[in-house]
């Protein structure tokens, strides 16, 4: 039963997010809007109910299964992107290398270096 109750909460926030998105004409998906509302709600109440925490953990561990219909489509793209594969590969590999480098340099410049062990509070 806790699983279903948690699912009910998540669906409620999904619908709330969809409602807000639609009424405000936001270009953000209902799921993302719902996630932000849930985070905000948890920060206000300062506590996660067990049923919500449990259901979320279950659903998140299922994510790989849920994205598979999208992933398998990679093998059925056919000739839709012929002639663009060089641009795609360069953007992904080069772009990721550059963005990792940028992030590391930014953090190195901003954060005073500490040894690997972080003191616990």
């Amino acid at each position: 039963m806790p699983l279903l109750r948690g699912f009910l909460t998540l669906l409620l926030f999904l619908i709330l997010g969809e409602l807000l998105r639609y009424l405000c004409n936001w270009p953000v998906s209902g799921g993302v809007a719902g996630m932000m509302l849930l985070t905000l709600w948890l920060m206000i109440t300062g506590d996660v109910r067990d049923d919500v925490a449990q259901t979320s953990q279950h659903l998140i561990s299922l994510l790989i299964l849920l994205i598979m219909p999208g992933v398998v489509g990679v093998f059925f793209l056919g000739n839709q992107f012929d002639g663009q594969w060089l641009a795609i590969a360069a953007a992904l590999v080069g772009g990721t290398l550059l963005s990792v480098l940028t992030t590391l340099l930014l953090l190195k410049a901003l954060v005073p270096q500490k040894p690997a062990e972080v003191p616990h509070d």
Partner: peptide, 23 residues
Amino acid sequence: AGWLSFLLGPATVALGVPLYQQF
């Protein structure tokens, strides 16, 4: 498989819990 893809909606909302917990 649209039945599975539908569950992505609530699963996205669920990401709010670890986000809050790591905050």
